[in-house]
Simulated assay, not measured.
Amino acid sequence: MALQWFPGHMHKALKEIKESLNQVDILIEVLDARIPYSSENPEIAKIRGDKPCIKILNKYDLADPEITARWQESLEKERGVKTITTSSDNPGNSKQIMQLVKSICSYKEGQPKAIKAMITGIPNVGKSTLINILADRIIAKTGNEPAVTKSQQRINLGSGIILFDTPGVLWPKLENPHSIYRLASSGAVKNTAMEYDDVGFFAADYLIKAYPEVMKERYKLDELPDTEIEFLEAAAKTRGAIQAGGRVNLHKICEILLKELQSGKLGRITLETPEMLEVEKEEMALEAAKKAEAKAKRKAKFKTGSLTPDKKDRKEKREEKRQEQSRRMRAQNKK
């Protein structure tokens, strides 16, 4: 699936983030605990430099807790990074973010200037809800759809902390094809930017392998099929996703599956693990190397041209003639 969703306001927002980052003391990046890697904006990583960063694994209540712990360990290996888990049903845990910000920026204690923090995150990751919890009042507009916040704003959280809120942004180019599907599966992009059938097949393939018992119980299946198409066909029958004539309505069953995944009705599900991403990064590196090699070959071919032996011979003779003329001219100039 080729995902092309980078509206003009996202381009503007990314530019503003780059311009404002040097004014802040600490960066707070909100991630989706179900897809910590795929919801991490690589553009932010490029411009962060050595600035300390708190990575918040939000929607923790929807994610597999054991895998989340592994993600926290993996993320904190990066220099200057601390992690914390949050969810809308646990505002007390969200308040720990303020304490962590103060702890990391303790060098500013006693100074007249407030700690300046910038908060970023992809669309629909729960950033606005988190801000309202931190501010203890309704500051940011919330909504269960991507791209609610459209412009940057400053919020005084009290306790000597100023928060720079930024719109949720994706990035211009999504390199990892698996990440594209995970973003779509989690609801990080609008429904209009995705095909339910395409994403549903991806989600079904992953879920029957990673959470077989969950899928078998949820869709009331005696046996779990081996392939995603067989699973979707079987699930469609138990959920009434059948068209006239007894045909399976694949679009409807994919829609049901994705909505239940996004709402948490399937239970605590995580769509990627640190170990999976190591393998995928290696695959992407190999693919990038192949593309670079192919590009180099095309470039070399363009320089030499697609010559038949006869054309190549004539070209060599013309080159020899030019070199001979050049030698005669140099000899005449010396006289």
Score class of each variant (00 low, 15 high):
26 I>K: 02
125 V>S: 04
143 G>L: 04
51 K>N: 05
275 E>G: 02
157 L>H: 07
321 K>P: 03
2 A>F: 14
248 V>E: 05
82 K>W: 05
7 P>H: 05
172 P>T: 06
139 I>P: 09
16 E>D: 14
23 Q>E: 15
241 A>S: 12
7 P>T: 09
306 S>D: 12
37 Y>T: 06
237 K>N: 04
79 R>V: 11
170 L>M: 15
184 A>L: 03
312 K>M: 11
114 A>W: 11
197 D>A: 13
83 T>V: 10
84 I>F: 08
283 E>G: 02
139 I>H: 08
203 A>C: 04
202 F>T: 01
268 R>V: 02
265 K>V: 00
227 T>N: 12
199 V>F: 03
312 K>Y: 10
141 K>S: 13
280 E>N: 03
65 P>M: 12
304 T>R: 12
40 E>T: 14
48 R>A: 10
39 S>Y: 10
107 Y>Q: 13
259 K>C: 03
268 R>Q: 15
24 V>L: 01
275 E>W: 06
161 I>P: 08
320 E>W: 00
25 D>C: 07
17 I>G: 05
121 G>A: 00
12 K>W: 06
274 P>A: 10
107 Y>L: 07
195 E>Y: 09
320 E>L: 00
34 R>L: 12
143 G>C: 06
231 F>H: 00
88 S>A: 15
249 N>S: 00
208 I>C: 05
43 E>T: 08
10 M>Y: 00
211 Y>F: 11
117 A>F: 03
198 D>T: 13
110 G>K: 14
250 L>I: 14
186 S>A: 15
294 A>Y: 04
150 K>A: 12
20 S>G: 02
213 E>I: 11
27 L>A: 11
121 G>F: 01
205 D>Y: 01
121 G>I: 06
23 Q>Y: 10
126 G>K: 07
143 G>T: 10
254 C>A: 08
133 I>F: 08
55 K>R: 15
93 N>L: 11
37 Y>F: 15
185 S>L: 08
331 A>I: 11
73 E>S: 13
53 C>L: 14
69 A>I: 12
110 G>L: 13
300 A>E: 11
324 E>W: 02
3 L>C: 03
28 I>Q: 05
118 M>W: 02
99 Q>S: 14
93 N>Q: 15
181 Y>D: 04
224 L>I: 10
85 T>S: 15
134 L>P: 06
7 P>Y: 06
51 K>H: 07
85 T>W: 09
61 D>S: 05
239 R>H: 13
210 A>R: 11
52 P>G: 08
112 P>W: 13
177 P>Q: 09
196 Y>A: 13
191 N>M: 10
118 M>E: 04
118 M>A: 07
267 G>K: 05
43 E>G: 00
